[in-house]
Design a protein around this nucleic acid. Structure first.
Lengths: 341, 341
DNA sequence: AATTAACACGCAAACGTTTGCGGTAACGAT
DNA sequence: ATCGTTACCGCAAACGTTTGCGTGTTAATT
């Protein structure tokens, strides 16, 4: 197929009997050009469907107006919600977005980072892969272009970081359970030192302390991957205890749902016997029965904020490399799994 | 911040005492260059972290190695699953991906299409916005670059189209219900003429006909947006009938789940009194109780196939513009909502 | 009438890369 | 000694755009 080539400034210039530079300036509303000339140029440009060649443009200006985004898994609703808002906000501000997945693979993440840089993006938005320890690539990127981390972040990388108030959110969730009269609250968390898990655990502990409840190691459960099946498994462990907990705070909706499924199987009354609270406000939390009380994370706000800060840094380069943490507020959505009738 | 500039061929050439062209050829393994020269060039290139400037490259070759993707809503699991495989497959083949959302807005979709073209993508992958009627923009794009449609397609656009076997899938789903001994099967579909809804409805009708079951307009329900709440509403309508159906085929998992919720509320036994089958195999289908029988759509295969065909067309431009439909097989996942004990 | 200032436009370089073409050296064959 | 061949490499143009600088015209000021 003979794909038509795009019209160029040269063709417009020839058609109008003007020089290329005049046409360029006319289209860019340069003050040196008379109003009539601008008019005629713009009219012809529209007629001939002129569109500036982004490559020539970026080639000269060394600016691509593309921002790169690296996430671990695009199919997680929370992630795609963030991506949606990133796309929207970026478009509003005149940027395009290239998305890559690391699949929680650190090597892949490094590779993406360098190809992003090679590709000439103006800046990068990244949510770290789990267990990221090697941050040299990120540091190397940092003196080439701005980088903003979100959700999964690391204090080892001196840049702007957009996170939710993990600790406070967990505190509020546990406080809510305590408010229901629960005295023996189990937690399901991750074994590995993930930023999010650590913070939420800290919030859990603070709530127990503040309300004078004892911390019992036996009902502090950890798992490698905090999934639905693991939630089931851990719930079964809790049920097998002589001294059962009267509430479960799961660090993840999936684990909470797994727990509910296990409790349902044993006809445990939720929330009377055991209340359950999750984290994320995924759609599943309204599908499961009883519906799940959970922490709503405003993904769209995270995305928007991240884009805002990144573009700010792109357009106003700073000389300092410092860690700046921006916290986005969450709020607890109370549903049947912890509803006090 | 003083962002470091990338090293260029010129710098490499100066360092090595060679010409720019020789360095370029050496890096591209041109046969004219001696093995030793290639070696030394490549070593220095690695040392100096040389990365080719994509813009200069694309500028010359008029090839960007970027493909544009337009979907209606990135947060739908089915969509993000497709996107995931598109990202993977594209990366394997050396392409980057730019994603845009139309939000089911036809005007937005047209706009995205033109900015994609303006941006110089090598080809476009698109799933149409609902109720797309104006296809002129797509046609205009088509003689600039290859376009491949997937999932939501239209016969008005002469290009390669990747779809699932909607009709057959629906047929199989209804046939499955008939196999359970169900004789009065309701359907929940969309009012508007969406490609998917039409096809699935056709499959429903064919199954009824083939097994000699009467078609009763009263239990053929349509709704504008086929969502969870609408599923509930329509189920309530069915329950209010004197002559209730003994099965429901919902064109969407969400509607099916809404129906189940309504049935559960009225303590209808599923599947004994009324069986339910959905479409999509969303995660929710395993969360709801009873778990939902549904049609599994292999999103990853759709994405991969779409990329394959698009890149094929990019790299081997054809002279003909014809509609070529590629069908991806689905399969029915039988769960508790239709399980014959 | 001469000088100046403002205005409108053109020339040409530059961005980094690829590539057709031409050139040089070395070497074997005549 | 000359020719042809091969192996390597450099020159320069081209891609489309922006932009500093120069230039010519006109109108206003002295």
């Amino acid at each position: 197929m003979n794909r038509k080539r795009n019209t160029t400034l040269k063709e417009l210039a020839k058609e109008l009997g003007l020089s290329i530079s005049t046409v360029s300036r006319a289209l860019n509303d340069h003050p040196d050009i008379s109003t009539e000339t601008k008019e005629s140029v713009k009219i012809l440009a529209a007629q001939m469907h002129y569109v500036p060649n982004m490559f020539a443009k970026g080639f000269r200006s060394q600016k691509t107006n593309i921002i790169g985004v690296i996430v671990s898994n695009i199919t997680h609703l929370f992630t795609s919600t963030i991506l949606k808002s990133i796309l929207e906000e970026a478009e509003i501000r005149g940027y395009r977005v290239i998305i890559s997945e690391s699949n929680n693979n650190e090597a892949k993440q490094s590779e993406m980072l360098t190809t992003m840089s090679q590709f000439g993006v103006d800046g990068v938005l990244m949510s770290l892969a789990r267990k990221t320890t090697y941050v040299d690539d990120a540091l190397r990127i940092l003196n080439r272009m701005p980088l903003v981390l979100f959700d999964k972040v690391s204090s080892k990388i001196p840049c702007t970081q957009i996170v939710i108030n993990e600790e406070e959110a967990a505190f509020n969730a546990v406080e809510h359970l305590i408010g229901l009269g629960k005295k023996r609250i189990a937690i399901m968390k991750e074994t590995e030192n993930s930023y999010n898990s650590e913070k939420r655990y800290a919030g859990y502990l603070r709530a127990l302390n503040q309300y004078g409840l004892p911390v019992d190691e036996k009902i502090i459960l950890s798992t490698e991957d905090i999934s639905l099946v693991q939630g089931k498994r851990l719930a079964n462990i809790l049920l097998s205890m002589k001294n059962r907990p009267d509430a479960i705070f799961a660090i993840t909706d999936n684990a909470a749902i797994g727990a509910i499924k296990a409790l349902n199987k044993f006809k445990i009354k939720i929330p009377e016997e055991i209340a359950v609270v999750g984290f994320s406000n995924s759609i599943n939390s309204t599908i499961i029965s009883p519906t799940l009380t959970t922490v709503d994370q405003p993904g769209d706000k995270i995305g928007r904020t991240a884009v805002k800060y990144l573009i700010e840094e792109i357009e106003n380069p700073k000389n300092d490399l410092l860690t700046k943490t921006v916290e986005i507020k969450t709020n607890l959505v109370v549903r049947d799994s912890s509803f006090k009738a």
